[in-house]
Design a protein around this nucleic acid. Structure first.
Lengths: 194, 194, 194, 194
DNA sequence: AATGAATGAGCCTTCATTCAT
DNA sequence: TATGAATGAAGGCTCATTCAT
């Protein structure tokens, strides 16, 4: 039955994902999840004890998927430029809400109960993983002559800061594709080998 | 009485600011404000009909103050570099939570009920005002030879994106002064005249 | 309005008393009180935050009333025997459930969350007040020659222990008037002056 | 299997005893028992349908054990005084919580759903059994000249009332060994042959 | 017999909001 | 204007009890 239970847990997570994508984090109640999953109040509590619990699990899953995607492709033949382009394209998708995104929910989750060191740790890991991926890409690009960069770590951090800023802008003011392209072009222009 | 009323309204706003700075936006209830202001439940509703209402007013005030500070100094004799330094120092303060900041509350406010065009407009104005200030500073610096920049608008946007990213990092993962300095140095290094 | 509030609080206490008398302590929920008082859920919470809160207040009131009754009569002309008789008659009433009694509720209250020192203190005071009253009566009776007792404190404690025991019996096994009379007679027989 | 079933039932009872001793009666849920016994929810319902059911069985067992202990020893050579001393010592142990006691649980059980005649009957039997034992001891003591008593039945009832009162005090106000000794001395002093 | 997931009723508690004074 | 008592909806959580396996 543990197998069945795991399936149900996954079903709840999948369904909850849609709820969080639509309503953010703070506006989601256990009742919302219950309604969306069409299960009983008590039934949900068997698997999760709070919306935070659910969301934390969701984030872990997302992080793993992200990891799988990139750590797979990064050591293969494709050029650094191609992968970086893929990475930025993924980010663009999220920024343009072209896919069901946990963007807002993730921020809200981060803000609620900020003094939770587990949570802080979760975000640190996430960030570091990202930085590492981007830095490697830049290094690889430098070696192959596609890119030129004297401080790959700094550049990687800079790219992620900008992306973070754009994400916030996509939520607070809205953002268009050309906005994004302009910003990305700006940061990339410093990396292009002359 | 309108004078008295205005004073009371301002008193409520000032007091509420502290509450939002401490608890963010979503966690603040009308009751919290009532308690902090030591007025009656009904009394508060005479002036504001919701926490959103209060916070929106608060943000407008903040924007105006910011405007006053910089649009005043920007046309005067002080060098662009000095003002930019002042601006970045202010941002650092906020990032390091050295002053009572509405950072988190502002984000939470942005996230709650996102499809409110008034709110979006508010944030757009805020961003544009910022960009304008920074762009002017860069232009002024270029003219005086302090800085070198071919795309002041792009640079200004880039700076604000990075700052936004750092703000988010300060909330999600925590951030140290040297983290901030490193990122600021990185973006400034592209602007320094050789 | 504080006057009105006080009245309402008293109304709630009076009504709650009936509920506790009927259902004991642990079986009473805030909803029971709300229903009995015909007020809103939230309305009750304005005055009391839990059934414990309500019951504690109720007990204090009871203790004060008891105090008023006896501390008034004890220093007056009536003979010790008369007052003792009155006291025992009151106890009999309670034992026979002839009046709406908080007996069971009081015990249940005592048992729930026993490690509460406030509560323990409350019961100690209650007991000591009782002992003091009965001891004084016995002393007075000894002086007037109505009673004979070498250890008034011990006798008082013994009487109260027996009464406590009878109370428990009234709850656990039921008890008849003649049962009570027999036990009281037994303990009194040792006090009657030959 | 009936043998195996009986063993399991006994195992549940033994385990449940500890739970009741620790948490009283009303605070114990079927889930508590399930957790303590490390069996399944449904499994418990095969043997018992409620906590009341379990506790009732437990009390019967206790009563039988008590009976075995004393009805065994009472007809043997040991002196009445010795046995009475043993009896009182047992009571003291319980009063001082020196052994895992069902004291509180028993009272709570008695109070919940009082109008249950089965339960009343259970307590009556318990009391009568006790009275009978103590009365016999007193009679035996009288015959042997150890004690002096004109009304053994009354004296026995008195002793049990006092013990009941002390039990309640041990719960409501706390009680020390010297408190107990004093009360027991008081009631015994009337029985000691001059 | 035994399991443990699932249900749903029921209680607790907090708030936004109203309204008589 | 100002008060604060009152309301009732909403969400959180826990259990007794059932039932398919």
């Amino acid at each position: 039955m543990s197998d069945k239970a795991a399936k149900k847990k996954q079903y709840i997570l999948d369904t909850a994902r849609g709820v969080f994508a639509k309503k953010g984090f703070k506006n989601v109640t256990m009742k919302d999840i219950v309604d969306a999953c069409d299960i009983s109040r008590g039934g949900l509590y068997i698997y999760f004890e709070s919306t935070e619990d659910i969301f934390a699990e969701l984030m872990k899953n997302e992080a793993e998927e992200m990891d799988d995607v990139f750590s797979g492709s990064i050591n293969e033949e494709s050029s650094a430029g191609d992968i970086l382009a893929l990475f930025l394209k993924e980010q663009k998708k999220e920024l343009l809400s072209e896919k069901e995104s946990l963007l807002v929910a993730t921020y809200e989750y981060a803000f609620s109960n900020m003094n939770n060191s587990d949570r802080t740790e979760l975000f640190k890991e996430r960030l570091n993983a990202f930085v590492k991926v981007v830095r490697k890409l830049i290094e690889k690009g430098s070696e192959s002559g596609e890119l030129y960069c004297e401080d790959p770590e700094g550049a990687a951090r800079n790219i992620l800061n900008v992306i973070e800023g754009l994400k916030i802008r996509s939520v607070t003011t809205g953002i268009t594709e050309s906005d994004i392209d302009r910003e990305l072009l700006y940061i990339m222009s410093g990396l292009i080998a002359d």
